[in-house]
Design a protein around this nucleic acid. Structure first.
Lengths: 173, 173
DNA sequence: CTCAAATATTTCGAAAACGAACTTCGACAT
DNA sequence: ATGTCGAAGTTCGTTTTCGAAATATTTGAG
């Protein structure tokens, strides 16, 4: 018994070796793990890239995502919920983000006349100005980030990612 | 002048229309935008998937990444820095994460005898047990997430993502 | 040998995100 | 019309993360 416990100490992971093997085998060890770590790595590096890119404009990645969404929308106002979806954050997080940006005078909120539940968000003149400055500042904006890929590779990458998203959506249901 | 300001009000965004066009054009016929939003969406959904998958084991995605890294390492201990790299978080964040997991008795820290600057982290018996439970609980763990893709598509996806990562690495330098 | 620079980890304070609960409305069936 | 259900937005408390500074140790240059 003394011997056993001493031995178990050394080979604690060997007791679970088959689970490790199962896990590694299921992970394909190549494909799945590689894809998942790569996806996380890209978002991580993308975040850092945004930080560097917009640091001198005092813009965070999250704020940029709101700014760009509203700019793309043009005249059409967006609701906080829509912005939360587009920015991939919880609605409660968007509230705080909009508070800050409204405080800086970048955007304005007004009640939707047709539905008092909703709030309509739109860029102010200052918001448009900051968007323009950001576009000029980093004069190619996002295109740098994918410069290792050809046009067809970009489409292929987008296609594969969207398949993954669909697969994860199905799990939800 | 009154007319002008009234007009500017309505078409504030038109003043910056060319910037929007620039932005859209730089986005490379939207393929860049598509890729970036897709990457963010995948990580988002992946996080949600981890939460659901491991909720009843009281495991977060971050904790799972530490657990799995140590399990894969087997007998080899890992340092907090290595775990931070593998988990894509700052070293200071890893300290807190390890504190919590050590508090739960899942892992232990001991000083590296050959270099007193380093700390060696390894799973306890309980840590191994939780890893095994997680592997059995969701019996294929991460492979579910990519089930829409064939094997060759997975490799292709990983390859493309790694090219993007390399491109973003170069920007750092 | 000694001192400066680099590395590994932790501490600390601040910023951001989340989920849950709450409030206010709108939609719709009875 | 009315009462119930669901949606939108916000508030609140907690958790997680980060960056910068502090500490301890190793490494390398002169």
């Amino acid at each position: 018994m003394r011997f056993m416990s001493a031995k178990r100490r050394q080979t604690a992971q060997q007791e679970h070796a088959s689970d490790v093997a199962t896990y590694v085998a299921a992970g394909g060890e190549e494909s799945v793990q590689r894809v998942i770590t790569a996806v996380y790595a890209v978002t991580k590096k993308l975040d850092q890239w945004y930080v560097r890119q917009f640091a001198d404009l005092d813009l965070t990645q999250g704020e940029w995502s709101v700014l760009a969404a509203l700019a793309r929308a043009g005249d059409t106002c967006l609701t906080p919920s829509q912005l939360a979806d587009l920015s991939n954050v919880a609605p409660s997080s968007m509230t705080h983000r909009l508070d800050k940006m409204a405080g800086r005078g970048l955007l304005q909120r007004r009640p939707d006349p047709t539905n008092r539940t909703r709030t309509l968000v739109s860029l102010t003149t200052e918001g448009w100005a900051l968007f323009s400055a950001a576009v000029r500042e980093s004069n190619v904006v996002e295109s740098d980030t994918l410069r290792g890929l050809s046009s067809s590779e970009r489409h292929e990458l987008a296609r594969l990612l969207e398949i993954v998203i669909d697969g994860l959506d199905d799990v939800d249901a």
